[in-house]
Design a protein around this nucleic acid. Structure first.
Lengths: 192, 192, 192, 192
DNA sequence: CATGAATGAGGATTCATTCAT
DNA sequence: TATGAATGAATCCTCATTCAT
């Protein structure tokens, strides 16, 4: 099919470079020139693929967020029992966060700083719908505590970010056993 | 009376301005000039109180961290039963994070970005010792799960940051009842 | 034609502006912004050609030093008799210093202040080798006093800098006759 | 006689600090605050003794220039024969420049840069009158070449500055023998 | 006379973005 | 499409000088 107008490879290289550099230095301490250099393109080329720096980060965020939720729900079956469904999703998320650490770090940084546009963050939340649906079912079936999604997320999912960051900083090394313990804590905190 | 000494008021105003501006814009998007303006001093004056921008943020972090843990453990009695002791500390922390929201936001941003020097962060961790001691006791008494401090922190304490940020963003409003639910989730996740 | 390469013209304009401004105001009283303005480029452009201000001055020094010694030794023949060889070199140097006054002023300022890096100055000294070789031969042939190169330089060459500066300051106007007198003094001071 | 309004000690300490710092860093790289610190006074105190930075350096220059010429001519007798008189003055100057190196360095820096006001420099020249008188006599008695004072100074006196700076930079160590050689070169260059 | 605090003006440098090719 | 050069606008920080005490 001839030559693609724009090279998806270059776009990917730029997104990848952005993740790595922002992870290590933060958004504002990451110059476009460095991103370009790491992606092996000219600074001017970035503007062929992205409107500006903010757009580059926004898109990077959305890319990863999609990848994250895709992975999380890839094996999810809306018909399985709540507990089983939750364990499956939780472990997929854990796998993503701990194995695909760079990406997860980036999301964590985005979610805890005024780095990306609020509207973009809102969009990202929608991807979680399958999990919210599961919880709704769980509450109805009186398997899960009758509390808000925020609370469930705060206790069941968010702690993984903390563990992931701690591991990245070398504070601890998460073994299979730790993951199992973490899952237990997650489930204990939300189960009825 | 007072004008021959470096004014603690000015230092405090600078720290306060730093917190507010960094919360809203992030470290690198917060110019020294704006901090100065908000604190109602000349930019040059900042350098009488702090070595440079990094030092300003480091010191701000340590200030708040100390305030945070002081508040958290102010009413702590090392001899109370583990469950009671934990509930007390947890609720103090919750009170701090939700009432003293600006400060808590700042800490969250520091803890999730490469914003402050790692050595400073390390120092900040030490302040948590009373909580770690309590957990150690809880594990010995088989009241708390025999898992690492990181795991306990991730599930018992860290979710509060998520809830606090969500509230700050207007996503939810935490009532007394929510706090109680959150406490229950926290305790459920770590209790044996 | 040419706009895809860093322009040697711009570099030269920057070097030239540096010389003029530093001559008149000294290193630290010469802002980069003024250099840029005089060279008709943006301040940021300087940093495409030079690492920083110090590098700009260092390179300017080396440029001129090379030009200076190239000119001085351009007509030098290592086989001519010592006296004749010296007279030739001396007069070339005199010509350079008095006609190419701006450059010579710059060198003088560099050599009498802590303005350029010592390592750069050291490099500059090496260019004088042909003159030192001549003197070595002169000493061997007992035409020149058996004293150190420093002494010979101090008396035979350096006075030209003083005369050049004095002329630049308008204290005197050096005619052909003065040059001849100066040459005589130079030779008298070092000949055996 | 009671308390002097201003302490001459403080003024001297300031002048001394100025010399040392300007020698090592240059005029513009020497902040008033550092001068104050080295002189062990407050920055504000400098302004009790000097109008501003320029005035401080100007006065420092004049102080040293006076000290220099006082020393040079202290043992000078206008009636001694020219050659003897010159040797005496030359050796006093050499002694000053090589032993009182800091001061001489400062003068050299002033004389080769746009550091001090031209009017001040002019004043400093007048102090050399006894030497100029001696040369005038020497020319009349046909002991000294019939050339301008500038030329005589350039060859007879100025080389000492070069040697002094070279020694300060560690390039050479001037022994008694070197001084004698230098004197000989100086005399050879100007004698008839 | 002496000071430490305070500051406005200025300087080196960086960087997101544009433009000519 | 792709680029390297170019830049104006910012940003951190310094410093001569002043001022209240």
């Amino acid at each position: 099919m001839g030559k693609l107008q724009k090279s998806i490879d270059k776009r990917n290289a730029l997104v990848k470079a952005t993740i790595e550099l922002v992870n290590n230095n933060g958004f504002h301490a990451t110059p476009m020139s460095k991103i370009a250099k790491m992606a092996d393109v000219s600074p001017a080329t970035i503007y062929l693929y992205f409107e500006n720096k903010q757009d580059l980060v926004n898109q990077t965020y959305m890319d990863i967020k999609a990848e994250y939720t895709n992975f999380a729900f890839a094996t999810h079956n809306p018909n399985t029992p709540v507990k089983e469904g939750f364990e499956n999703i939780w472990k997929r998320i854990a796998e993503f966060k701990l194995k695909d650490c760079e990406n997860a770090m980036f999301l964590a940084q985005c979610d805890n700083t005024p780095m990306i546009d609020e509207s973009i963050r809102q969009k990202g939340i929608k991807h979680l719908q399958p999990l919210l649906d599961l919880w709704e079912r769980g509450r109805n079936e009186q398997v899960i505590k009758p509390v808000s999604d925020y609370l469930l997320y705060a206790y069941a999912i968010n702690p993984l970010s903390f563990l992931m960051i701690s591991q990245k900083r070398g504070a601890l090394q998460l073994s299979k056993k730790h993951i199992e313990e973490a899952y237990q804590a997650a489930w204990d905190s939300i189960k009825l």
